[in-house]
Design a protein around this nucleic acid. Structure first.
Length: 152
DNA sequence: GCCAACGTTGGC
DNA sequence: GCCAACGTTGGC
Protein backbone atom coordinates (compact mmCIF):
# COMPACT_ATOMS: atom_id res chain seq x y z
CA UNK A 1 0.00 0.00 0.00
CA UNK A 2 1.19 3.46 -0.87
CA UNK A 3 0.48 7.01 0.12
CA UNK A 4 -0.36 10.02 -2.02
CA UNK A 5 -1.23 13.68 -1.85
CA UNK A 6 -3.95 14.96 -4.14
CA UNK A 7 -4.69 18.63 -4.69
CA UNK A 8 -8.07 20.17 -5.21
CA UNK A 9 -9.13 23.77 -5.38
CA UNK A 10 -11.82 24.16 -2.71
CA UNK A 11 -13.68 26.53 -5.03
CA UNK A 12 -13.98 23.64 -7.47
CA UNK A 13 -14.22 20.64 -5.17
CA UNK A 14 -13.55 20.85 -1.45
CA UNK A 15 -13.23 18.33 1.35
CA UNK A 16 -16.78 19.27 2.36
CA UNK A 17 -17.98 18.48 -1.15
CA UNK A 18 -16.35 15.06 -0.84
CA UNK A 19 -18.05 14.51 2.51
CA UNK A 20 -21.45 15.19 0.95
CA UNK A 21 -21.05 12.73 -1.91
CA UNK A 22 -22.83 9.39 -1.79
CA UNK A 23 -20.52 7.00 0.08
CA UNK A 24 -18.29 10.05 0.53
CA UNK A 25 -16.76 8.88 -2.74
CA UNK A 26 -15.83 10.81 -5.88
CA UNK A 27 -14.26 9.90 -9.23
CA UNK A 28 -11.09 11.96 -9.48
CA UNK A 29 -11.58 13.15 -13.04
CA UNK A 30 -9.92 15.92 -14.97
CA UNK A 31 -6.23 15.12 -14.45
CA UNK A 32 -4.52 16.21 -17.66
CA UNK A 33 -0.86 15.97 -16.79
CA UNK A 34 1.18 13.00 -17.96
CA UNK A 35 3.28 12.61 -14.86
CA UNK A 36 0.18 12.57 -12.68
CA UNK A 37 -1.57 10.31 -15.17
CA UNK A 38 1.22 7.76 -14.95
CA UNK A 39 0.95 7.59 -11.19
CA UNK A 40 -2.82 7.25 -11.36
CA UNK A 41 -2.73 4.64 -14.10
CA UNK A 42 0.29 2.62 -13.05
CA UNK A 43 0.69 2.91 -9.32
CA UNK A 44 -2.46 3.83 -7.42
CA UNK A 45 -4.28 0.89 -5.89
CA UNK A 46 -7.41 0.46 -3.83
CA UNK A 47 -6.49 0.87 -0.17
CA UNK A 48 -3.82 3.50 -0.81
CA UNK A 49 -3.90 6.47 1.56
CA UNK A 50 -4.53 9.99 0.26
CA UNK A 51 -3.82 13.35 1.85
CA UNK A 52 -6.51 15.69 0.58
CA UNK A 53 -4.95 19.08 -0.06
CA UNK A 54 -6.61 22.43 -0.73
CA UNK A 55 -4.71 24.49 -3.29
CA UNK A 56 -5.11 27.94 -4.80
CA UNK A 57 -7.03 29.30 -1.84
CA UNK A 58 -6.62 31.51 1.21
CA UNK A 59 -5.21 28.75 3.42
CA UNK A 60 -3.50 26.09 1.33
CA UNK A 61 -2.86 22.87 3.22
CA UNK A 62 -3.84 19.31 4.06
CA UNK A 63 -7.45 19.15 5.18
CA UNK A 64 -8.37 15.48 5.23
CA UNK A 65 -7.54 11.83 4.77
CA UNK A 66 -9.04 9.81 1.97
CA UNK A 67 -8.40 6.45 0.40
CA UNK A 68 -8.38 5.03 -3.09
CA UNK A 69 -11.39 2.75 -3.42
CA UNK A 70 -11.22 1.96 -7.12
CA UNK A 71 -8.09 1.59 -9.25
CA UNK A 72 -7.48 3.33 -12.55
CA UNK A 73 -10.11 3.38 -15.29
CA UNK A 74 -10.58 5.71 -18.29
CA UNK A 75 -11.72 9.24 -17.51
CA UNK A 76 -15.01 9.62 -19.42
CA UNK A 77 -14.93 13.41 -19.29
CA UNK A 78 -12.11 13.27 -21.86
CA UNK A 79 -14.52 11.67 -24.36
CA UNK A 80 -17.26 14.29 -24.05
CA UNK A 81 -16.93 17.14 -26.57
CA UNK A 82 -19.14 19.32 -24.40
CA UNK A 83 -17.03 18.83 -21.32
CA UNK A 84 -14.51 21.31 -20.07
CA UNK A 85 -11.89 18.57 -19.82
CA UNK A 86 -12.60 17.13 -23.27
CA UNK A 87 -9.51 15.90 -25.08
CA UNK A 88 -9.99 14.55 -28.61
CA UNK A 89 -6.79 12.52 -28.50
CA UNK A 90 -8.26 10.32 -25.79
CA UNK A 91 -10.65 7.76 -27.28
CA UNK A 92 -12.59 4.96 -25.62
CA UNK A 93 -10.63 2.34 -27.57
CA UNK A 94 -7.33 4.02 -26.68
CA UNK A 95 -7.75 6.24 -23.62
CA UNK A 96 -5.12 8.81 -22.74
CA UNK A 97 -6.51 9.91 -19.38
CA UNK A 98 -7.39 7.85 -16.34
CA UNK A 99 -8.88 8.39 -12.92
CA UNK A 100 -9.42 6.60 -9.63
CA UNK A 101 -12.26 6.82 -7.13
CA UNK A 102 -11.44 8.38 -3.80
CA UNK A 103 -13.40 8.10 -0.55
CA UNK A 104 -13.17 10.36 2.46
CA UNK A 105 -11.82 8.66 5.55
CA UNK A 106 -12.02 11.71 7.79
CA UNK A 107 -11.56 15.43 7.83
CA UNK A 108 -8.65 16.69 9.88
CA UNK A 109 -9.39 18.58 13.07
CA UNK A 110 -7.64 21.55 11.50
CA UNK A 111 -5.83 22.53 8.31
CA UNK A 112 -2.18 21.53 8.34
CA UNK A 113 -1.00 24.48 6.33
CA UNK A 114 1.57 24.62 3.59
CA UNK A 115 3.29 27.35 5.57
CA UNK A 116 3.93 25.08 8.53
CA UNK A 117 5.14 22.23 6.33
CA UNK A 118 7.80 24.44 4.78
CA UNK A 119 11.23 24.24 6.26
CA UNK A 120 10.67 20.99 8.12
CA UNK A 121 13.71 18.78 7.79
CA UNK A 122 11.43 15.72 8.00
CA UNK A 123 9.90 16.80 4.68
CA UNK A 124 13.12 17.44 2.83
CA UNK A 125 12.56 16.54 -0.82
CA UNK A 126 8.79 16.37 -0.55
CA UNK A 127 7.52 17.40 -4.02
CA UNK A 128 4.84 19.72 -2.63
CA UNK A 129 7.49 21.95 -1.15
CA UNK A 130 9.60 22.22 -4.24
CA UNK A 131 9.58 25.55 -5.96
CA UNK A 132 6.66 26.06 -8.33
CA UNK A 133 5.53 22.49 -7.97
CA UNK A 134 2.47 21.95 -10.13
CA UNK A 135 1.81 18.27 -9.78
CA UNK A 136 -1.75 17.62 -8.70
CA UNK A 137 -0.95 14.07 -7.58
CA UNK A 138 2.28 13.14 -5.85
CA UNK A 139 3.72 10.28 -3.83
CA UNK A 140 4.13 10.54 -0.08
CA UNK A 141 6.46 8.24 1.83
CA UNK A 142 5.20 6.46 4.92
CA UNK A 143 7.52 8.58 7.07
CA UNK A 144 6.21 11.80 5.48
CA UNK A 145 2.64 10.63 5.91
CA UNK A 146 3.17 9.93 9.59
CA UNK A 147 5.02 13.16 10.16
CA UNK A 148 2.44 15.35 8.45
CA UNK A 149 -0.42 13.76 10.36
CA UNK A 150 1.49 14.04 13.62
CA UNK A 151 1.13 17.82 13.28
CA UNK A 152 -2.63 17.64 13.50
C1' DG B 1 14.29 18.55 -32.97
C1' DC B 2 14.45 23.36 -31.56
C1' DC B 3 12.44 26.95 -29.27
C1' DA B 4 9.31 30.97 -28.81
C1' DA B 5 4.69 31.83 -27.63
C1' DC B 6 1.08 30.79 -24.96
C1' DG B 7 -1.87 28.89 -21.25
C1' DT B 8 -2.16 27.14 -16.62
C1' DT B 9 -0.98 26.52 -11.85
C1' DG B 10 -0.83 28.18 -7.48
C1' DG B 11 1.46 30.88 -3.72
C1' DC B 12 1.40 35.25 -2.09
C1' DG C 1 -4.37 40.64 -9.05
C1' DC C 2 0.47 39.63 -9.77
C1' DC C 3 3.82 36.90 -11.51
C1' DA C 4 7.23 32.98 -11.60
C1' DA C 5 7.59 28.49 -13.18
C1' DC C 6 6.41 25.02 -15.94
C1' DG C 7 4.02 22.09 -19.66
C1' DT C 8 2.23 22.15 -24.23
C1' DT C 9 1.76 23.66 -28.86
C1' DG C 10 3.08 24.59 -33.35
C1' DG C 11 6.02 26.88 -36.90
C1' DC C 12 10.15 26.10 -39.00
Amino acid sequence: MRYWLMKSEPGEFSIDDLERRPNRTEPWDGVRNYQARNMIRDEMQPGDGVLFYHSNCALPGVVGIAEVVRGAYPDPTAFDPGHRHYDPKSRPDRPTWFMVDVRLVRKLARTITLAELRGRPELDGFPLLRRANRLSVMPVTEAQWRFILSLE
